[in-house]
């Protein structure tokens, strides 16, 4: 029989052995990569050249002088409009599809489908649907919009429409979980007071799902700021539709300009980490059924 303190030492040792791989992975793929990103952003590192010089904040200066970057930043923020729009439709859907039943269940499945579909397939189809000459959308609505052209707004709205289409279902599922937690007695009391359907929606439903709205808006912004596939596949690199991550890719991987691309990636990382931190602070990350 081993003593209690030996057992304790054994447990502590094994507990560390069991987390060794994730810790090693964290230092290899996250920490050291971030350190290198930081270093790249302060040098003129180029993988096809031998020597590397420290250049201070020169990359950041060049970054902000780069019209393509400024455009990518504007686009990335503008495209975030799709987050609240998708949430709004998701909330309406959840209220409508709240009742159990086969028809509602089938509709929920349908609205959620884009969440399990590949962004590649979706973007290729949407690029075809949005096509200015033979696209189905212009034909059905009997309009003539060059969605994929070089105009300032059309491609942005195409990306926003595609994202609202894909995000409604995810918001709906989360809101359904939230609606489950609202006691029916609240609505009954409002009925007695003679509240209208709109009053019930805005005075009971909307305030009581606020934690879910907060979660959706923060995770939506974080995901939206990392959007790459829409810029590459739907906008096809059209400067009016590219995002910051596309910019990092095109300057870094494609053009070997690691310094400028890393400067952009450091700024993006800082903003996203801050937002995630806010989210962590606000939420307890509980499991909802």
């Amino acid at each position: 029989m081993r003593s209690a303190s030996t057992l304790y030492r054994l447990e502590k040792r094994w507990s560390l052995v069991f987390i060794a791989l994730p810790v090693i992975g964290f230092f290899t793929f996250t920490i050291s990569a971030m350190v290198f990103s930081f270093w790249f952003s302060l040098t003129d590192f180029n993988p096809v050249r031998m020597e590397t010089r420290y250049v201070g904040l020169e990359n950041f200066r060049r970054l902000f002088a780069d019209a393509l970057f400024r455009q990518a930043v504007f686009n990335t923020f503008f495209l975030l409009i799709s987050v609240p729009i998708g949430m709004f439709f998701g909330l309406l859907l959840s209220v409508y599809l709240q009742q159990k039943g086969a028809k509602n269940y089938a509709l929920r499945l349908l609205y959620y489908l884009p969440a399990v579909s590949s962004v590649v397939a979706i973007n290729i189809i949407f690029r075809y649907l949005f096509n200015g000459e033979f696209g189905l959308l212009n034909h059905l609505l009997n309009i003539d919009v060059q969605w994929l052209g070089t105009g300032r707004w059309p491609i942005k709205f195409a990306i926003i429409i595609r994202n609202v289409w894909a995000a409604m279902g995810v918001a709906m599922v989360l809101y359904l979980a939230g609606l489950n937690n609202i006691p029916a007695s609240y609505y009954e009391a409002a009925d007695i007071d003679g509240a209208s359907i709109f009053q019930k929606f805005f005075m009971i439903t909307v305030p009581l799902v606020r934690p879910i709205s907060f979660f959706l808006i923060v995770t939506g912004i974080i995901a939206g700021m990392q959007n790459f596939a829409d810029a590459q596949l739907l906008a096809n690199g059209n400067p009016q539709g590219i995002t910051v991550v596309y910019y990092i890719w095109v300057r870094g991987i494609d053009a070997n300009r690691y310094g400028v691309a890393s400067a952009a990636s450091i700024l993006l990382g800082a903003i996203i980490m801050l937002m995630t931190y806010v989210q962590f602070r606000r939420s307890s990350w509980v499991e909802v059924r």
Binding site: Y8, E11, W14, I19, M225, Q226, M273
Partner: peptide, 28 residues
């Protein structure tokens, strides 16, 4: 399990979820 510095280690590993792929992409 009982683990030394459990909270710190856990927070450290979870913090990797905060880092966007684009930030570690070029060095990787």
């Amino acid at each position: 399990l009982r683990m030394p510095y459990k909270k710190t280690l856990l927070l450290m590993l979870l913090s990797s979820m905060m880092v966007p792929y684009a930030t570690v992409m070029l060095p990787q």
